[in-house]
Amino acid sequence: MIDFKDITKTYGSGTEAYAALRGISFSINEGEFVAIMGPSGSGKSTLMHILGCLDTPTSGTYRLDGKDVSTMSDNELADVRKGKIGFVFQSFNLLPRTTVLRNVMLPLVYAGVSPRERENRATAALNAAGLTEEHFTHLSNQLSGGQIQRVAIARALVNDPALILADEPTGNLDSRTSLVVLDTLQKLNRWHGRTIVLITHEPDIAEHSERIIRLRDGSIISDEKNPAPRDAARETELYDDPA
């Protein structure tokens, strides 16, 4: 479903040129849960931007759902993001002083979905992200960190995207809450068959995925299956009951 072929990204030009990505190729199939790992400066942010159609590569081709998106214009990219990609950010990026339901419905506003349909789909997405009706009318600043990130996950889900792209989703959360968020992502992957790409620099977090791609200096240094992904749900139980 995702097909990266020889992707490079260079910033600047001439002698100032800096290669953030130096020829990256991989593919991700539907229903996979992949972690992209690397230290800062490894190019994982650049990779995430290209993967999320926020940016285009300098060379190489990126096919998403069979479509070449590597040479698209800004407006075409916006169109692809609207329908095929759901983002979960480290800093949540919910609209402040806005209800949970409105936040989740926001992508549907741009997709031109009718108001009635929006509410149904937002409710379904919030339920899938593990939030109940009582939270729907809360303002985003009245929620805990874990709840906020689950609202953000629901927002990423609501468009029924081909790919959920989570960029350091646990970066601003404590370990307990991080597990709740990881559990939510794992359930979406296992029960709903969502394709999830998780970008992180923490090995603990990456180990919850089924496959780990490691980056260093703009190149892939390893791409392997994780034989025993950690189960966030079980860890949460252990957390709550250490005995």
């Binding site: 800004d74 609207k82 329908g83 983002f87 741009y110 997709a111």
Partner: peptide
């Protein structure tokens, strides 16, 4: 950041 978010979820310029 709101502008960035709106663009990320599919708003055009």
């Amino acid at each position: 950041r709101e502008i960035g978010l709106r663009k990320a979820i599919g708003a055009t310029g």
